[in-house]
Amino acid sequence: MTGAWIRFAASAVCMVLGLVFMVSAVFGVNKFRHALNRMHAAALGDTLGILFVILSLMIMRGFSLDSLKLLMVIVFFWIASPVSGHMISRLEAMTDESLGELSVLEKGSKVHVQLHDVSNLDRRASREKKKKGAKGR
């Protein structure tokens, strides 16, 4: 009797962990603003969420052929999910018109800064100095 209750406790802990991961994944997908950030949140549910939920079901089921099938689901999902994530990120990198903008969060307000303004600031200043010098000569 106590063995059955220990098994129930283990499966309940795994199920609750998986559901917490799924809730945080959906919360992150609804909260973040850009698609690449959203993908970062969605990958959490695709890997750890499904791992813990199906692990809980395998503990419930015991050692049998059904739990082997459920294990196959996890194995296939862990192979397929990074591939689909890579495809989605390539789609986003090709089709996003504002990929070069770097969004900077300040207190309360949101300011967009162009990426080349940030990375090439000093180089650009030196180039402008050269141009001005050439004009002067």
Binding site: A25, A35, M39, A42, I88
Partner: peptide, 10 residues
């Protein structure tokens, strides 16, 4: 479109 694909995948 990629936001929608992410949501449908989830």
């Amino acid at each position: 479109i990629s936001d929608r694909i992410i949501a449908v995948n989830m």
